[in-house]
Design a protein around this nucleic acid. Structure first.
Lengths: 337, 337
DNA sequence: CTTGGCACTCGGGAACACAGAGTGCCAGAG
DNA sequence: CTCTGGCACTCTGTGTTCCCGAGTGCCAAG
């Protein structure tokens, strides 16, 4: 059905269209790529490709443009992820050197990725539920008020102010803290609920109401899907790539956390690239855009995802290379901190 | 020079232009506003207004458009800040009800403001340097590693991991923590450096190296201009308001923290509105945009600023009303939490 | 299967005309 | 001195027409 030459033609069309942003005709193809055949032959191949939905012509007698299906085939079978240049690698290192806290890691990463790909970068904060407890702290603020601080192994810090049902001495707080930490240290966040279930029993009866209050807030903290926190950068790049339609829609989608979450997609393998092309993605406002995403994490566990969003007409090999490299590098940083 | 009627004409021009986005001519003015005079008279006034630079005509025989100077006069003398409707007030309350931490307050505020004004909203995090210490916590993580957590009265939490020069027992850490908190509780962040200067002296000699390490990190935390953290939302509104030129430039400016800082401007009085119109603002990429900003804070101290950014052709009275209301409301929330 | 030739299609730019909105100015009225 | 109606003039934006050229599909021959 699709012999090698037809595939070569498709590849050439994608490459040319990506670089020129203009429909590409048979003559131009024959000139710029040495396919060894005449324009007429290419025309026949193009007709076949169009027949099968890989390319499309905007109007009779204009060149051809790849369809989403065409890009899909290109990504799956006709291209190789392009590794970063040495200069780009160095840029990553200097950009991420000397970060001090999680916010900064995420912030710099998203900018780095936007700059590297010249597209909109999207980074999800390391998921709460998939990380584990490093420490729990209970800080007395006033007689009947404490602050609960939860620190995870990813460096994430969540805190809540808790109003207590009664006055509590610092000693009793300290004891509760010790018990909690003994239970929870290193405990995966998803298993916190079971783990703390029997904490009240280990305490003197008088402390139980207070402990219950604090524990309920702790559990609330876990439930709130703060894990969905997502940031993006590089929207200016959208304006540059003269978007066919709906710059507005794209900007709206970017501000919807829920949409973004779904775009980044469900977890694949760690550092494994996911590409969603145009109509493949679940949101109608993003018809003309593609998403290249990857998971990142420390060690071998995927903690969250990151990626870029750009026009379907993007340079997939380069973009995929950048996303993969950044995902890996962020993983290292997280593991090392 | 500018009698009352000329001012009325200018006001009418601004109002019409804002609502129609088309140059406004003498006839239309005479029809829509009952100024009690004929178009010919209005034409004369317009000529005078143009003479003095308040309005401008894109081409001969098109209507007039206000200049930046015209908008300035309008804002200063011809308009009154428009209070929010009851529905809008309710929207603010429900939007900001039940927030749990600072991040959430800021996040919701910026979205609220964007939605309310249908423009790009910008909110600065409460400044670190202008707030005060609520609590300092030192959490042992490993033998030679602690986490330093600083909690401010605005609910902001900064944390750093500190590597210690030697092993330290929990008791000694606890003591250090007690001493630190005794000194710093309620201390304005800007005066922390002097306040902690004599802490080492109050400790046994053996603890001083550790204390010094921790203190130096604490001071670093204060110096890092995290206070410049700024978020924005509502960029989709930019795309809707068909921007005359440079959507791209605007998006770029928004991603430059430094530029944003300067746009929000230096502190005025608390809840006092600052308006920068077009060329008045310090960044060339934003020629066609205006900024309406206000300070917010708890009690009577300004902690940070917030505002919106939109085309110079914006509805100033309404926008100013929204910004002022939100600034006040956020102040209350901060004070109450 | 490939190739050169050829007639055909269609989008986009240039040239042009035209209607309508808006202006400036002037002379007369209050 | 100010306001008003009238009038000639100047633009822009729009619609029309026309034409060029790129690109195609098809066909018959190699």
């Amino acid at each position: 059905m699709l012999d090698d030459r037809k595939l070569a033609v498709l590849r050439a069309i994608v490459e040319d269209y990506v670089s020129t942003n203009e429909p590409v005709g048979s003559k131009a193809l024959a000139d710029r790529h040495n396919l060894g055949v005449s324009p007429a032959t290419i025309r026949n191949d193009m007709a076949a490709l169009e027949e099968q939905g890989y390319i499309h012509q905007p109007h009779t007698s204009a060149g051809r443009v790849p369809t989403d299906k065409g890009y899909r085939l290109f990504v799956d079978r006709l291209s190789q992820v392009k590794p970063l240049s040495a200069a780009e690698r160095r840029a990553i290192e200097t950009f991420l050197a000397g970060v001090v806290d999680l916010d900064e890691i995420v912030m710099r990463t998203v900018r780095l990725l936007a700059q590297l790909t010249r597209q909109v970068a999207v980074v999800q904060y390391p998921s709460l539920t998939r990380s584990s407890v490093r420490h729990v702290e209970i800080v007395p603020l006033a007689e009947r008020r404490v602050m609960l601080v939860l620190i995870t192994n990813t460096g994430r810090v969540e805190q809540r102010v808790v109003d207590l049902p009664e006055e509590v001495t610092d000693d009793r707080i300290a004891h509760l803290r010790a018990v909690l930490n003994a239970c929870l240290d290193g405990c995966g966040l998803s298993s916190v609920p079971e783990t703390v279930a029997d904490v009240p029993e280990r305490l003197p009866a008088e402390d139980r109401p207070v402990a219950a209050t604090i524990l309920s807030v702790l559990l609330e903290t876990l439930v709130e899907r703060h894990e969905e926190k997502i940031v993006f950068a590089g929207t200016a790049n959208l304006a540059a790539a003269d978007f066919s339609v709906g710059l507005r829609d794209v900007l709206e989608a970017l501000e919807e956390q829920v949409v973004l979450m779904r775009l980044l997609g469900e977890t694949g393998g760690l550092s494994e690239l996911t590409v969603r092309i145009g109509s493949e993605n679940p949101y109608t406002g993003l018809r003309g855009t593609s998403i290249v995403a990857a998971g990142y994490g420390s060690g071998d566990k995927e903690l969250a995802r990151l990626g870029v969003l750009g026009p379907t007409r993007m340079d997939y090999p380069v973009t995929m290379g950048a996303v993969r490299a950044v995902a890996r590098y962020v993983g290292q940083i997280l593991a090392g901190s």
